[in-house]
Design a protein around this nucleic acid. Structure first.
Lengths: 238, 238
DNA sequence: GCATGTGAATGGATTCACAGCT
DNA sequence: AGCTGTGAATCCATTCACATGC
């Protein structure tokens, strides 16, 4: 297949700030495409979705020249490009560790079961849960069977949805099973091994942040925020 | 009540980066307190939890002088101080809009029902759901009754757990009902009104970020990340 | 001596503003 | 003309390093 410009093969070290925004742009583009729009300028995109046009251009420019000067960006072309860049043009299989409330909800969460992602199983140690299914039909299997599940289904992503105390050992087990990208929902700082990407989301922190606002709003210049786009840690300052 | 040093009454405009870390420090301190430790230096705290000691000191210094030079910080004193600063020394009541998978899971999620937060109800428009309860017993009530629920229970925080299309109007309804701090899980950029704090969490973005890593790991200097601490938007650049 | 609290220095990320292309 | 792509400028966050106080 002929590939205009470069592929994403330049090793410029893209920041997570940037990649997070790529996801946002992808959403915006899908929305616009659904409205039959053909092209859009970075300016209009910025206006519509409360973004900054220069930032959009800069983010996109990391991955090749994709706009047309004087015109803007072709919506569906750019969308496809972002899908490829984000690696969700191929199916990414996911296993969720922990079939508690959160794990079950994530398994049935539409955003986790569409657009390139497929949850192949939940795993849990509780014998009472094993063999059952989530509402939408994702099987709950034994935690022991993890490695087999991962191998048979080519699972690439693991989600940690277990209590804080177990999170570290579950991380290890997921990593041992061959998974090398892990999303952690337990409220602990997991000690990550190199080569196994870790991303942590702490739901409680967000509530606490709102509480802080409520407690201090008089003295605070109220600032609202866009979708959370994360920050990265300094390259292994061990 | 005598109040050593200042209270949090200096209007220095604390960044959300900072407040997010306060939550992290609070976790760490609770953990240490459970181990009967009495004091800790910023250095040791940094070592144990992979943080930066100067940053810890700077973050804490925003809220008064709380350490003792040559010694460190008194763990339980500092912990109490953080709890007050974060405003979770008083009970913060929460209502969740949307009794789908995510809403139900959040309602039963331990982190949302402890440490100062109390979920008083789920609300939904689906008549089939109204009257039922989540597994842990949170009632599902009609969306119409929102205002009454908010007033009777002094609800301060709203959580949006509805599909993207409905998120904006649910935001408006929550704001109209008197709530002024809202946590949004729908994958859309909500247009916030001033005076009503909005924080958005996009779960899908995190998966996409991992997918990006998988698709580009060869060309990327693998960097792992700490707990997501969010970023704030420029002060109303309307 | 040791650890805090903080100005100064560094490092990133965002924004500006314009050269260059269509 | 209009809009992209990008160096330069700005802003903000993190880190350093030391004066200050226990």
């Amino acid at each position: 297949m002929a590939n205009a410009g470069r592929t994403s093969a330049d090793k410029e070290a893209i920041s997570e700030m940037t990649t997070g925004r790529l996801s946002v742009y992808l959403r915006c583009l899908s929305f616009l495409e659904a409205q039959e729009l053909k092209t859009i300028s970075s300016h209009e995109l910025a206006d519509r979705f409360h973004l900054n046009s220069a930032q959009i251009r800069k983010d996109l420019a990391h991955f090749g020249e994709f706009g047309i000067r004087g015109v803007g960006y072709n919506i569906s072309l750019l969308k496809d490009h972002l899908i490829k860049t984000l690696g969700i043009d191929v199916r990414r299989r996911v296993v969720i560790a922990g079939a508690g409330n959160l794990g079950l909800a994530l398994a049935d969460y539409h955003g986790f079961n569409a657009g390139g992602f497929e949850i192949v199983a939940l795993v849990d140690t509780d014998p009472g849960k094993i063999g059952q299914s989530s509402r939408s039909g994702i099987r709950i299997r034994g935690f022991d069977g993890l490695r087999a599940i991962v191998e048979q289904n080519q699972v690439e992503i693991g989600v940690i949805a277990v209590p804080a105390e177990e999170a570290q050992s579950v991380y290890e087990a997921l990593a041992d099973s061959g998974i090398c990208a892990i999303l952690n929902f337990a409220p602990v700082q997991i000690r990550a091994r190199s080569g196994v990407k870790l991303k942590s989301v702490d739901l409680r922190i967000n509530l606490e942040s709102l509480s802080f606002y409520l407690a201090n709003r008089d003295e605070i210049s109220c600032v609202n925020d866009p979708i959370d786009t994360s920050g990265a840690e300094p390259p292994s300052k061990r």
